[in-house]
Design a protein around this nucleic acid. Structure first.
Length: 537
RNA sequence: GCCCCCGUAGCUCAGCUGGAUAGAGCAACGGACUUCUAAUCCGUAGGUCGCAGGUUCGACUCCUGCCGGGGGCGCCA
């Protein structure tokens, strides 16, 4: 690609000047300000000191050298500011980008193989099967699903997994709450009092034992959660049952192996994990003095199971679990796993606002906003896009009134509208018989309008962007890029007519190529977020 | 007290491994529809990037210390 040409021109010039640089030091970037050219290098600023030059002088020498033998595709090279070297290219390189996008199509565009097929397990949501999913779960759900998409796009083999805590204290309280509600008794202390408990208990068969209630409630809740997730297009490859590890003996084996590795000990009638040996603040209880496991113990066994199936584990946890990271990594190391292959992605809390007031999230009380309600209110696409629009590192304010009533404020419509507009251009071209019978010899050099070039620059950036989003597990970067691409599309749509009497046939066919390329861009980006690209709005 | 996240325009947020004059949407103001969807486009206005030091040719970005907001520090899950 063109960046290689520029890099080698730079390193050649530096060599001629007797300045030695490593290829890795040559760093090219696309300046934010278009007046600074298409590509820019700071190499003179970086190397000047060691070479004993003034940065601007060095840059001038480099430019002189490159200009004496200007590579094709580069229109001019200049020195600017404190010593930047700016390259202006002929639009031809962007036309190459267009051809590449068309050739790749929606199935290939933006995809690479840096993951080399490495297996990654993405565990997310993992809500207790004691109630419906709420607005807070949704952030982790959209995020986890999207990073699995992105990791797949860069060549990993991603598996989506949901860990079901179908045993333990909370399950017991849930079952007791259902039974109490069913028989009209008082909900037990610390039990579940949400309105859904009443609705669910009415669905429940009569005269169930506590154990049967637990089974029934668990599968009912799981079914409800599964259904809600499917409403926003999230389908898990595996639902891993905590209880199954009791039956299989996995938990006992894990306890034994921890003991064998001197990672656990008895104290005060409880069994402890020696986690402080592995960087945790303190040791943690694995088996309580009453003989029950803590939450940690089955989870350790579970992670171990995941490691037997995948090389890299990603857990998406809420901010309230961050204190749990150190002990889990400690346990993995104690069991001989590489804690570096366990990545914990923390999503900050979602603050729900309705009517200007904060809505508290608590499953134990009645006032939860269910994910199902949100999806029914604003639709799956707006739900997913809204949750993915900002970094999970920041706490999110989700304004339900805004999302429901002022749809125009919602960027998802802006992006989807861009796609619908491109489709309508194609539909018109189709009705005139000039599409999709596209002439492959369209003269792309006709694409010189700034709107057209802007579109191509956006498309050029996509592949690197997907890799960055994968590296940082940051789907919001895709969402931000989509808004930029949509802005370019709307600008192009406005200023560059594609099909019409006063547009030459040559220009029409060149622009039709661009329309399809931009469309491929929108579809590819939206796909990674799990948002649809409708033909009309 | 310790740990994690955040602090950027009136509001909601971007800002890539440090780069040139800090960006976008909404809200405000002013323009653009005989045309492929005006659910759009163009322009104006709006900033001490929480504060103070440090590193650097260069800091919103990295380091340290404060201040402010949120979350977590159980033999709960």
């Amino acid at each position: 690609m063109i960046t290689k040409t520029i890099s080698s021109a730079l390193s050649g010039a530096l060599e001629d000047l007797g300045v030695t640089v490593l290829p890795a030091q040559i760093n090219l970037e696309q300046p934010a300000n278009k007046e600074h050219g298409d590509w820019s290098s700071n190499i003179a600023l970086v190397t000047a000191k060691n070479a004993g030059w003034n940065p601007r002088e060095l840059a001038a020498k480099i430019v002189e050298t490159i200009n004496s033998n200007l590579p094709s595709g580069i229109e001019n090279v200049t020195v600017a500011g404190p010593g930047f070297i700016n390259f202006a290219l002929s639009p031809q390189w962007l036309h190459q980008v267009l051809l590449a996008v068309l050739e790749q199509g929606t199935k290939e565009f933006g995809r690479t193989n840096i993951g080399k097929g490495k297996k990654v397990n993405v565990e997310f949501v993992s809500a207790n099967p004691t109630g419906p999913l709420h607005a807070g779960h949704a952030r982790g759900a959209c995020y986890g699903d999207s990073i699995a998409n992105i990791l797949t796009a860069v060549g990993f083999e991603a598996q989506r997994e949901f860990y079901v805590n179908d045993r333990g204290l909370q399950m017991g309280l849930f079952a007791e709450s259902l039974l109490a509600r069913k028989s009209g008794n008082q909900i037990p202390e610390n039990g579940y009092a949400g309105a859904y408990i009443e609705e669910w208990s009415e669905e429940m068969p009569d005269d169930l034992s506590l154990e049967e209630t637990l089974d029934w409630g668990c599968s009912y809740a799981q079914g409800d959660q599964r259904e809600t997730l499917e409403m926003i297009g999230i389908v898990f490859d595996a639902w891993f049952s905590e209880r199954s590890m009791v039956d299989s003996g996995a938990i006992e084996r894990t306890m034994n192996d921890l003991m064998k590795n001197d990672a656990s000990y008895l104290k005060d009638g409880a069994t402890w994990l020696n986690s402080s040996e592995y960087g945790d603040d303190k040791d943690r209880v694995l088996v309580k003095s009453d003989g029950e496991f803590t939450y940690l113990t089955p989870d350790v066994a579970y992670h171990r199971d995941k490691f037997s199936r995948s090389e890299w584990l990603i857990n998406v946890w809420g901010a309230d679990h961050h204190g749990y990271i150190a002990r889990m990594k400690a346990a993995m190391e104690a069991l001989g796993h590489d804690a570096g292959q366990l990545t914990i992605a923390i999503t900050q809390l979602v603050k729900l606002v309705r009517g200007g007031e904060e809505v508290r999230l608590s499953k134990r009380h009645g006032d939860i906003i269910e994910l199902r309600e949100i999806v029914e209110e604003i639709g799956p696409d707006a739900t997913r896009f809204s949750y993915l629009l900002q970094s999970v590192d920041t706490k999110q304010t989700f304004d339900l009134d805004l999302a429901a009533s002022q749809v125009m404020d919602n960027p998802v419509f802006y992006v989807q509208m861009a796609h619908a507009r491109l489709r309508s251009i194609q539909a018109k071209a189709e009705s005139l018989g000039v599409w999709p019978a596209m002439p492959l010899d369209a003269d792309l050099s006709l694409l010189t309008h700034e709107r057209e070039l802007e579109l191509l620059r956006d498309l050029y950036n996509f592949t690197d962007l997907v890799q960055l989003a994968a590296r940082e597990l940051a789907p919001h970067k895709i969402a931000v890029w989509l808004r930029e691409l949509a802005t370019s599309v709307h600008g192009f749509y406005h200023d560059c007519y594609v099909v019409g009497d006063d547009i030459s046939q040559q220009l029409t066919s060149a622009r039709l190529q661009l329309v399809e390329a931009a469309r491929i861009g929108l579809v590819s980006g939206l796909d990674l977020l799990g948002v649809s690209a409708p033909d009309s709005m």
